[in-house]
Design a protein around this nucleic acid. Structure first.
Length: 568
RNA sequence: UGGGGCGUGGCGAAGUGGUCUAACGCACCGGAUUUUGAUUCCGGCAUUCGAAGGUUCAAAUCCUUCCGCCCCAGCCA
């Protein structure tokens, strides 16, 4: 269930205050991904924050692609990101691209040059690093720093015209090589890149840097609050410097900006959240995918949004998860159980109940007439009658799960064992009389008798039957492949390890190719979600299903206090 | 060792001088209900807020010092 509004946090306090005391007339945020990879849970936090905040305070939020590095970005990524944001359930005011502003950006660069606040530098990358200084030592001025504005302007125009090769020249802001903040030591504004841009094509051979582009894009769009993660705290000084030194005049939505008019956007940083047993860095995700450790970006073991979607996570569960973890100024590590709780909560209320047996064990009811069958009318949800009922076929031969039988069960195992009685959920009580084993001693078949007077949860003599198990009629069952996922890593913080690949959980994907499901599942469509009673929540796979085949992904198990007892 | 941040129970997170022997969620531990060992319900779970001093009638909240952790030296974002 979706929460009506996001909980309070420090950014909401700041923005509400700005609204209250008239610092701004409305809230305008943006979610600014770079289209160089797929979105993951970390992005979901930012998406929910930006879109959620705007929605809560009656404002607007843009989806803006921060596409200033053509060599790493692509249309494929852009479209996947756009689709994931929409899937999460958010509507952007405008879909923008930083590349839409390349002309404006170029103009602002010229303005800085003319004002003597930017210069073309001919230091190469290595020299620039030396001149920049270190964390503890200040930098030195580049020899180009004193270049006359007119000369820089000429050089910059020729950079744009393609007269210089890559790496030869850069445009730098003239700020302070002695600043203790390294971001302020004459940062690069433009670099030469003879690269094809997925949107701008070959129009440009110079591309603006993030720090220059981002703040101006915000200002042009009329963004009031620019929310980003903690590592950009040092960049805020630069963000403010650029906006203080260019003349916007009027932004793209027609507002006067600067001076006594509309104030410049304000950057506010918040902490990242990491999920235990996962990695989120783009580099690591790309490595997992390209080296084949997982099966694509949408592998259900990944916490990419496309992976979570294929796994069966609902948009609402992810939004609730983000609301639950909060927004603060410190980085955090979230327990997997919080994510699992979010999806269980959603699916408990919304998933249709069904019977599915992952590890089938044949059970023959010897006193039930051969060739006959009957159906039980059962509820699709124990507490929600609006979800209707379905017919569940029952016959002499059924499958139960191997986990529901033990040859020598302890007293607290209230399922089936030799001589024990158990109730078939929605059906009869059966008693196990005979256990058939193969030559290797594996239990392959159970012979039972049923009590015809035990339907509807009653027994004729009033005896209580504690154990209840699920089952599927053998003659009516459909075949399915069920994929059960576990955490991708064996360590809570794989990202911190030198070799995160070696920490991959070898049992992260377990397949049950001969699972048996009740026939009603045949009507399922890709992405339909179910609860297999007593087992877990499952989602009809959206990729590997072809005509007549059923592939089910386990989203999450049911809470299992019996498994917990076993561990003690 | 320069600069910027952060430290409240196992994990998150409220709280910004008095109602704090510190909310809430997750996890955990009981117990009740239950034709899912699910769900639901009820109860328990920090005399203490990184540490030490100080201010005050009163501090998690103010001051000082110390300790720990994170980020910054891409022509990445």
């Amino acid at each position: 269930m979706s929460k009506a509004s996001t909980p309070n946090h420090f950014i909401k306090a700041i923005t509400s205050n700005d609204l209250k005391n008239g610092k701004c007339d409305y809230i305008y945020t943006r979610f600014p991904p770079e289209p160089n990879g797929y979105l993951h849970l970390g992005h979901a936090k930012s998406i929910c924050l930006n879109f959620g905040l705007a929605a809560d305070l009656g404002g607007k939020c843009n989806l803006r692609f921060d596409d200033t590095n053509p060599e790493k970005e692509s249309l494929e990524y852009m479209e996947a990101i756009r689709d994931s944001v929409a899937w999460l359930g958010f509507e952007w005011d405008k879909l923008c691209h930083a590349s839409d502003y390349y002309d404006h950006l170029y103009g602002f660069a010229l303005e800085l040059i003319d004002k003597g606040l930017a210069y073309v530098d001919d230091l190469n990358a290595e020299q620039m690093r030396e001149y920049r200084g270190t964390l503890t030592d200040v930098g030195r001025d580049s020899p180009s720093r004193s270049r006359a504005p007119a000369e820089s302007r000429d050089l910059f125009e020729r950079m744009r015209a393609g007269e210089f090769e890559e790496g030869k020249l850069t445009l730098r802001a003239k700020i302070d090589m002695g600043s203790p903040n390294i971001s302020m030591r004459d940062p690069i504004i433009y670099r030469i890149r003879f690269a094809h841009h997925y949107r701008a094509g070959d129009k440009w051979c110079i591309y603006p840097m993030y720090d220059f582009t981002h703040c101006i894009s915000d200002a042009l769009e009329g963004i009031t609050h620019s929310l980003c993660t903690l590592e950009f705290q040092d960049n805020r000084e630069l963000y403010d410097w650029f906006l203080a030194n260019i003349t916007i005049g009027e932004n793209l939505i027609g507002e006067k900006v600067g001076g006594d008019a509309k104030p410049m956007p304000r950057q506010i940083e918040f902490g990242r959240s990491n999920l235990e047993y996962t990695v989120a860095s783009k580099r690591k995700l790309i490595q997992l995918v390209t080296e084949g450790h997982v099966n694509g970006w949408d592998d259900p073991r990944l916490t990419t949004l496309v992976g979570l979607r294929r796994r069966g996570y609902t948009p609402a569960s992810i939004r609730n998860f983000c609301a639950e973890i909060g927004v603060t100024k410190k980085d955090s590590t979230i327990d997997m159980a919080v994510l699992e709780n979010a999806i269980r909560q959603d699916l408990e209320a919304s998933a249709k109940r069904v019977f599915g047996v992952l590890k089938p064990l044949k059970l023959i009811i010897s006193n039930y007439p051969e060739g006959e069958s009957e159906t039980f009318s059962v509820k699709n949800h124990p507490k929600d009658d609006s979800m209707g009922t379905r017919e569940l076929p029952f016959s002499r031969e059924i499958y139960i799960d191997q986990d529901d039988f033990m040859l020598e069960p302890p007293a607290e195992f209230f399922r089936l064992g030799p001589g024990r009685e158990v109730r078939l959920r929605y059906g009869y009580a059966v008693t196990c009389n005979e256990v058939i084993e193969d030559d290797d001693g594996n239990v392959v078949e159970l012979h039972c008798t049923y009590d015809p007077l035990s339907a509807k949860g009653k027994t004729a003599d009033g005896r209580k039957i504690k154990g209840i198990i699920h089952w599927v009629s053998a003659a009516h069952a459909i075949d399915a492949e069920v994929r059960v996922y576990d955490r991708l890593y064996t360590e809570p913080n794989p990202g911190a390890a030198e070799d995160f690949i070696s920490l991959i959980n070898p049992e992260s994907l377990q397949s049950f190719p001969s699972a048996k499901l009740e026939p009603s599942v045949l009507e399922a469509k890709p992405e339909d979600r179910f609860q297999f009673e007593r087992v877990g929540y499952f989602c009809f796979d959206s990729v590997d299903n072809s005509e007549g085949s059923v592939v089910m992904n386990r989203t999450v198990s049911l809470r299992d206090t019996w498994a917990k007892v076993g561990k003690k």
